[in-house]
Amino acid sequence: MAKKLYLKTTIKASTEYLSLINKLTLDFLSLLKTENEEAKNISLAVDEALTNTIKHAYKYDDKKDVEIEYVYENDTLTIKIYHTGIPLSPDKLVFPDMKEYLKKYQKGGLGIMLMIKFMDSVEYGNENGKHFCKLVKKIS
């Protein structure tokens, strides 16, 4: 029978929890026997999505909740980060010309770039009155 896994947790919108969620993501991926370096890439993508939520959607308001949902089925891992703050703009998903970026010593939007590089897809949307960032990665 094909493997299915599900986990959902809620944290307050504080960067204090980043390290904890990083470990949780790695532990979840260990259940799938994901190769160590790939697991680290995915946990970094989750860290970046979470950081963006805390920073931009909630403006560091640690009274707010962030939900993180992990679903594994059909060889695909889907991680959704839910919030009820300011929706994050999809136009920020455009990948810049890195040569120009580095030449101008820019520093914004790096988190989204890492998410795009390490995941198969990154998507923003809303459902049931909540906004989400959805990260998808095929894991066989």
Binding site: L18, K107, G108, G111
Partner: peptide, 16 residues
Amino acid sequence: DYISSAGLGALMGVIE
């Protein structure tokens, strides 16, 4: 052990 984009941003803040 670990660096996220926040660390890259910090380096970009002083490199110029």
